Simulated assay, not measured.
Amino acid sequence: MKHTLLRLSAVALLVGTLAACGTHAPSSSSASQAAAYVPIKAEQVQRQAIAKGVYELVYSPKRNAVFVASSGGWGDQADPAKIVRLNPDTLAVEAEIPLQRKAFGLALDDAAGRLYVGNTVDTSLTVVDIAAQREVAVIQLEQKVKGADGKERYQRDLRQLVVDPDNHRVYIAAHAFEHGSVLYVVNTDTLQVEKRIEGLGNAKAPGIWLDAATNRLFVTDQGSKSLGEYIAKTVPGYSSNGKGNRVVVLDADTGAVQASVPTGEGPLQLWLDAKRKRLYVTNRSAGAISVHHSDTYELLDTIPVPTHPNTLAQDAERNVVFVTIKNGEGDPKGSKESVARLQF
């Protein structure tokens, strides 16, 4: 697991400077076969407003529940941060777990009954006991540093969290354009930072999925103009020739490009259902989820879930996909954001 995560992080550094490439997919003779896809109907999509500032979510098979991270939003209308537990069939709120700090990233150790919550703006990790419905600890990963303007701030923000239950570790990617990205390793027994791995470059990778069985790394290439302009101001000599609005498939060992898969506008997060040969992509700007065959990369469906679909989770046994949906400029300020349930 540790080697896999380090390999993933190293290849992720290519995201900010992906080379232009041609599209290549496996031939039909070599592509694995899966059940024929049936386009989803409107009645197979449920949606429920849940909380302000929803971000990542996870599905727990052991507890048959969906857990959603809520930052509470921003400004005078913000609510306290919390974890929201949902009924996976109805999306009804079953419980709320209050948090001291704003919740963004989320990872689950189902066997241990713990949630690990990324407090992005505080560069810390919150540990939650699911059964007791309470915080166990808040682990500060970095301290604030005084900048040239005299203000103190954290140098990095958090992105993805990955739990390695067998080795009692959780890995947290902390990103920074100017100061360099790092990977934190936290021991889940001692709840202490065990290691900080440097040298992960200056790129941010919004969506990555490693398919260990085929040694493929799926990476979203957003092509965000505003993000590119920000990086260019922050990182000297930065130049991106990524095409944007696509998923790039890389060889996980070498970083060689195997395919360039067109998506909707603003692809953000990925979910691979290897058994059914399905690749789901949230297209944030397009307000839709695209469904691709994960071997041929054929576009099978485009499912509208406006305004801004964000993150994904799956109940693989029942073939249900859950997605958090962010509000847009046209939505009432301070209103709750949503979770959708897609029954395939």
Rank of each mutant, 00 (worst) to 15 (best):
E152M: 02
A36Y: 14
L183Q: 10
Q269Y: 14
Q222F: 08
H168Y: 04
D76M: 12
Q133Y: 05
I197Q: 07
N327G: 12
A12I: 00
V321G: 02
K204C: 01
G118A: 15
Y116P: 03
S30H: 10
C21N: 13
P267S: 04
A176D: 15
L210E: 10
W271T: 10
R114M: 11
L86I: 06
L250D: 06
L270Q: 07
Y154R: 02
L13A: 14
V248R: 00
V281L: 04
Y280I: 09
P165H: 05
P39L: 11
G16S: 12
N245K: 10
L57Q: 05
T254D: 06
A256Y: 02
P165M: 00
G73A: 07
T282A: 01
G118K: 07
L106G: 09
L300P: 09
Q140T: 13
E96S: 14
P262H: 03
V249L: 08
T90C: 04
D273K: 08
T214M: 04
V305N: 06
A213I: 04
Q143L: 08
G264D: 07
T254A: 08
T307C: 03
D221Q: 03
A103P: 04
Q269F: 10
L99H: 07
L342M: 12
L268N: 15
S60K: 04
L8V: 13
K333A: 14
A112M: 06
A111S: 12
G266E: 08
L108P: 02
T220M: 01
E198G: 02
L6A: 04
A103K: 01
S181V: 06
D221L: 01
G147R: 03
A137T: 05
F344V: 00
E337T: 06
G113F: 10
V127Q: 04
L91F: 10
S294P: 00
T254I: 02
V186E: 07
R169F: 05
A95E: 12
G328Y: 10
K2W: 14
T307K: 13
Y280H: 07
P309W: 06
Y37A: 11
I130S: 09
R196Q: 15
I50T: 06
I83Y: 11
A288E: 15
Q143C: 01
K233P: 05
D89Q: 15
R196W: 04
R276T: 12
A81G: 09
N119L: 00
I172S: 04
V247Q: 02
T188A: 07
L141Q: 05
T23V: 13
L6P: 02
Y280N: 01
Y297C: 04
G75R: 11
V38G: 12
A252Q: 13
L8D: 11
D149V: 02
H293P: 00
A212M: 10
A148P: 10
V58W: 02
